[in-house]
Amino acid sequence: MADDRPIALDEYPVHQVPLSMKHVATGDRNAYDRCIFHVFDHRGRALLIVGLGVYPNVGVIDAYATLRTGDRLHAVRASDALTDDRMNLSVGPLRITVDVPLQRLSLHCAADPADPDSLSYDIEWTAAFPAVWEPHHVQRRGERLMLEGRRFVQAGNCSGVIRAGGDEIPVVAGEWTGTRDRSWGVRPIPGEEGGRAEAEYRPEGFHWLWIPVRFDDRFVMVIAQEDADGYRTLNEALLVRDGGPDVQLGWPRTEIEYRPGTRHPERAVVRLTAPDGRPMELTAETLCSSPLALGAGYPPATDWQHGTWQGRGWTDRRSYDMSDPAAHPAAAYGVTDHAARFTLDGQVGHGIFEHGSFGRHDPSGFTGYTSVAP
């Protein structure tokens, strides 16, 4: 083909397989490569979530930003045709710049020219600790590979400004925290025929915790994924200090206090174990919540999901009224990110308590998809 030519990245010795860097090593349509950032203040007034992803086998690049303040969730989403310039991390009004890899990144969103009071921001995200690998994530439904991802996570400081609804919110280092996750591999994109896997292997339940926490002198990462019986398929508890060896903290056991009549976590205790056997308690209090199915494009969103073709140059802005949770029933069946205050060994830290619990989960006492906390 006349247009099948090398791209700029092919100049560099970064190839892993005998293919152009334009192509991924799998023909799976669900191949992806993306990131997510969390920027939040320590008093629970604001939670900004930013993400960008490429889906090379469907030819799509997209990005989003959501801002939760009070009972309002502002959202910007953009999608376009993927080009050969994979170093250009921008879609519509949304842009991410890697200023110094693994150390400093810039997050930018331009306002709607027709609405100067719409969501916009300029944020500098600076690492406070080294990035660390998360466990290799593999999930199957029957024999069908649904998800395989390589990830790393990092915590840092943020500074800059966020604008929305006529307000300007200063982002001040020391008063705000940032976390981020990078992942790539295979992950479901809407539009694929479910086939036998969907018909015969419907999950009875899913229970997920992803908890990155930044303290002044350490970074703690906890991950747990369990099925309906409580069988754990993903597990991590790690303490990271700059310049020191990473420390494993055993098999995390989490006790969650849910808001009555919901599965919304209000407080939690994560029981950890130091290498010398000493018990440790990581406590969490959620401050500000943002369901990823609203605005951010995660399942089971009904207005837009990642990797779906929206046409060239598509941008969508909207806001959600969060005062009545019953107005957004799909959010209860998706993962929610909660900005939270944590304590560990007498220190106070801040991070994300990401949680999703749907269907049966025996350890929590949930009996099915309609089951909630008493």
Rank of each mutant, 00 (worst) to 15 (best):
L52K: 14
G53V: 06
V54E: 06
V54L: 13
Y55W: 08
V58D: 01
G59W: 04
G59S: 02
D62K: 05
D62P: 07
A65C: 10
A65I: 03
A65P: 09
L67C: 08
R68C: 11
R68Y: 09
T69L: 15
T69R: 15
G70F: 12
D71I: 05
L73D: 00
H74F: 15
A75Y: 10
V76N: 13
V76H: 14
R77K: 14
D80C: 13
A81Y: 15
D84R: 10
D85W: 11
N88L: 14
N88H: 15
L89D: 05
L89M: 13
L89T: 06
S90G: 13
V91H: 13
V91F: 14
R95W: 15
T97C: 14
P101G: 10
P101I: 11
L102P: 08
Q103Y: 10
R104A: 10
L105T: 10
S106V: 09
S106H: 11
L107V: 09
C109V: 11
A110Q: 13
A110R: 14
A110C: 12
A110V: 04
D115W: 04
P116Y: 01
D117I: 07
D117C: 12
L119K: 06
L119R: 07
Y121M: 04
Y121N: 02
D122R: 15
D122Y: 08
D122I: 06
I123A: 05
W125Y: 06
W125V: 01
T126M: 02
T126W: 01
A127C: 05
A128C: 06
A128I: 00
A128M: 05
F129P: 00
V132M: 05
E134P: 00
H136K: 10
R140S: 09
G142M: 05
E143C: 12
L145M: 04
L145N: 01
M146F: 02
M146Q: 08
L147C: 12
E148I: 03
E148V: 04
G149S: 10
R150N: 07
F152V: 00
V153G: 09
A155G: 09
G156K: 01
C158T: 06
S159G: 14
G160E: 07
G160R: 13
V161T: 12
V161A: 14
I162V: 03
I162A: 01
R163G: 07
A164M: 02
A164F: 02
A164C: 00
G165C: 13
G166Q: 06
G166E: 03
D167Y: 12
P170C: 06
P170Y: 02
V171F: 07
A173S: 15
E175P: 09
W176I: 10
W176S: 11
T177K: 11
G178D: 00
T179L: 10
T179K: 04
R180E: 02
R180Q: 05
R180A: 02
R180P: 00
R180S: 03
D181Y: 13
